[in-house]
Design a protein around this nucleic acid. Structure first.
Lengths: 101, 101
DNA sequence: GACATTGATAAGTCATTGCTTACAATAAGC
DNA sequence: GCTTATTGTAAGCAATGACTTATCAATGTC
């Protein structure tokens, strides 16, 4: 479920572009909208998805809203990845975490 | 593009379940279909997506088709992840390396 | 050869998604 | 105060996605 939102958030190319821009430096919605070939509402909707996946954060700054990447956002992804990184060693890890879906 | 297929493949919970089962041990389509609460065609369709994302492989074995994890399948995911691991997340890496001493 | 098992594909359905334009609310600058 | 800039949300739409049942080709078994 959490993994689902995480992977789904990163599946969209526009959303990955947003994330990568924010990784370079934090910026406002309008700034992202100017840089990417979609409308401002599309950016807001993408940011909402990224925020629900805990990949980005936002902070008010006057009329603007500054978005930045959540430092801990990629940690679950790395955890998931590490479960399969040890080849055959991953077998028991998989069995151990089969509870959650 | 490639990343899109990769993330999209892992976004679906049924597909992750298939991948995790194959990580534990290779098995046939029918075996997956018996274990998971979806029909056999659904399994085949999911396997097609996973295969196009280079996450699984298949080999003929008589009338059956044995699917297994592609050993290199998760490498692009790790590459993508590592692009953002050195920035704001450097503290984790430092902590992990210090722990290995 | 007859029959069952396996697995891919076709066709259809229903929900979700990514986008648009339109609009409302808030803050800034004159 | 009035206008301009910024942002979120609503509504609508075309495309995609995840499933189903039906079907067919290929293999295994008696």
């Amino acid at each position: 479920m959490t993994y689902g939102k995480l992977f789904a958030a990163l599946a969209d190319p526009t959303r990955r572009a947003i994330f990568e821009r924010l990784a370079a430096r934090e910026q406002s919605v309008a700034e992202l909208a100017r840089a990417l070939p979609v409308s401002q509402p599309a950016i807001s909707q993408h940011l909402k998805v990224l925020k629900e996946a805990r990949l980005v954060r936002d902070a008010a700054s006057g009329a603007r809203r500054i978005y930045s990447i959540d430092p801990d956002g990629l940690w679950p992804l790395r955890q998931w990845l590490d479960r399969f990184w040890g080849d055959q060693l991953a077998s028991f890890k998989v069995a151990a975490e089969r509870e959650e879906d």
